[in-house]
Design a protein around this nucleic acid. Structure first.
Lengths: 333, 333
DNA sequence: ACTCCTTTTGAAAACGTTTTAATCCTCGTC
DNA sequence: GACGAGGATTAAAACGTTTTCAAAAGGAGT
């Protein structure tokens, strides 16, 4: 329990605490000779700066919050990797929050982030309630939306066009000859699920089909397990010619359950996922999917956030929208 | 930029700041009437406690650190889920660090955690250098090892028997009739890789084979991509009858590359992974693997850590060692 | 020797909370 | 009606840093 403070360092180096602080934060402002002396004292004493004291006095922390919907989903893991890579050299800490698509958990996480006075928050909101995000901003905490379009102009957001993605996915299935299509979705509170569906319906309309014909199966969560359950439902009610899943995890679950029931993919049923996670290409029947620039999403969002924090006056808010890319594999051959 | 402080709340409620603090931290100590008044003021003013100030004065934070080797590996994601579930109701924050098996990155992350004066650290160390962990403890930060046996008696650790796992895996391959076996491993700085190999060699010895016969292929990282590369090497140098991978990610990469080269699994080569991540069961040829109580690892480690922090005197350090379980699937049929 | 810069350092206040010790009340008891 | 006991509340000091402002030191020019 060493508890070496800046004062001890100052005493050891024969300078004042203020100078030590300068060495730490504005090394340019202090003469090389003194700086060296201070640095020596720091390492001799094993001093490590008390982040909370620093945050308290300086008024801002070196911490950002990252709130995702499902940390078990490789999509978000890859986003997190992008965030990490940008942030780690800067000595920033990332506080991770997993909302599990529950507004209450998300609330609790945001509250924790607010208490920690994080510099900013990267969030993939799990619902459309923008109020709590606005409340964060009132506390001086910047917010950048990840995989979600902006709520308002004075805000950064990095997203991927989910309507376009849903349309492309279903257009692909239709082009392959499927006429009856099921859409396996997660909770309808999740925007991505809704928009991909909108796109899917648009594709049907464009093909001259009634969008009402899109059979929607709702899964409780966007996991493989939930996908298996959804597939059971499909099997019980009679199979469509093609299934479009809101997510690769759902699709992998659907695939597993279908194969187990003796349904052949893609011969009996074609199958499309979304996100193109690494495992999509490796699955039993390799999975067609919609690829998104996931890692980039994390990187760019973080860069925007940091710019907003560091240059509040010159910062230009940006709404970036990527286009997803169809990757056709065995499951829709 | 509201910046409501405890003083404002106190003024509004007509009490002193000390009383507000009591309402926040020891609600029992304050009369119901005043408490209500204070709570009303809190919500009217939208007060949120300044965590750094609290940490600074109280001497301890409501934050723990989680340092993993690869956040992209579902194994660690599941550990993280276990951690999250324990911690989230307590209002604790989790600072995530990804060491990417690099001691430098791990160092940097630990430094950040030390600066933040986290309550404790959960870590899967990426090497055997215990010095920096001891340094953390000197700063009064508890450390619990995850998926790693204890370095010292006065320390908690939750691990899985990797030697036993390696032995069981290779014994399984031998029982299936394989005589030439390759071991695809990650960096040898990673203990898990080394111990699984030790187990593998033990299994060979027990079967009357020369453990030197175990062909070791080293991959730079424990990812699917690195697995593909390793498989290419195997193919080029002549295939063994069975391949044991230190990790499911490696195994999935090996599998993908083998199939692409026209090698049949398990007919030409049997394949075993390790970790039994969700995707192992879903892959092209479902993957035999060693299952570990991953989620439990995270949960229990966190509980131990919190107990150590909250009851430093009554706390009994524990070294928990789980046994892995073999899951046989198609890849070793 | 003096002034006038520039560069470097130091003293002290402030950040928002927790906590200790002290004060103030309210009651019950004698 | 005085006295204490005991609970509720408060005032004030601390936690370790950053930052502002002023002062000191050093150098150059007269």
């Amino acid at each position: 329990m060493a508890m070496v403070s800046i004062k001890d360092v100052a005493a050891r180096a024969g300078v004042s605490p203020g100078t030590v602080s300068n060495v730490l934060n504005r090394p340019g402002k202090v003469a090389p000779a003194t700086r060296e002396r201070v640095e020596a004292a720091i390492s001799e004493l094993g001093f490590v700066r008390h982040g909370s004291a620093s945050t308290l006095r300086a008024g801002h922390s070196r911490t950002i919050g990252l709130s995702v919907i499902d940390i078990g989903n490789p999509f978000f893991t890859e986003v997190a990797a992008g965030v990490e890579d940008v942030v780690s050299e800067l000595g920033y800490a990332v506080i991770l929050g997993n909302s599990a698509a529950s507004p209450e958990k998300e609330d609790r996480n945001l509250r924790v982030l607010a208490e920690h006075r994080v510099r900013g928050v990267l969030i993939t909101p799990s619902g459309e309630d923008t109020a709590r995000l606005d409340r964060l901003r009132e506390h001086g905490i910047s917010v950048v939306l990840v995989d979600h379009p902006a709520h308002r102009p004075d805000q950064c957001a990095v997203a991927v066009d989910d309507v376009a993605g849903g349309r492309a996915a279903v257009a692909h299935l239709l082009a392959r000859g499927a006429r009856s299509i099921a859409y396996v979705t997660g909770p309808l509170t999740i925007r991505q699920c809704v928009e991909r569906r909108t796109g899917a319906e648009a594709a049907m309309r464009e093909a001259g089909l009634d969008p009402e014909g899109l059979r929607v199966v709702r899964a409780a969560t966007m996991t493989a397990k939930a996908g298996e359950k959804a597939a059971a439902e499909l099997v019980a009610q009679g199979l469509p010619e093609a299934v479009f899943c809101a997510n690769d995890l759902l699709a992998l679950g659907v695939l597993r359950a279908l194969l187990r029931s003796g349904v052949r993919v893609p011969d009996d049923v074609a199958l499309m996922g979304y996100d193109d996670i690494d495992f999509a290409a490796a699955s039993t029947v390799s999975l067609s999917s919609m690829r998104q620039p996931t890692y980039q999403l994390g990187r760019i969002a973080t860069e925007l956030l940091l710019d907003e924090c560091d240059n509040p006056d010159t910062h230009a808010h940006q709404h970036i929208m990527f286009q997803p890319e169809l990757v056709a594999r065995e499951s829709t051959q």
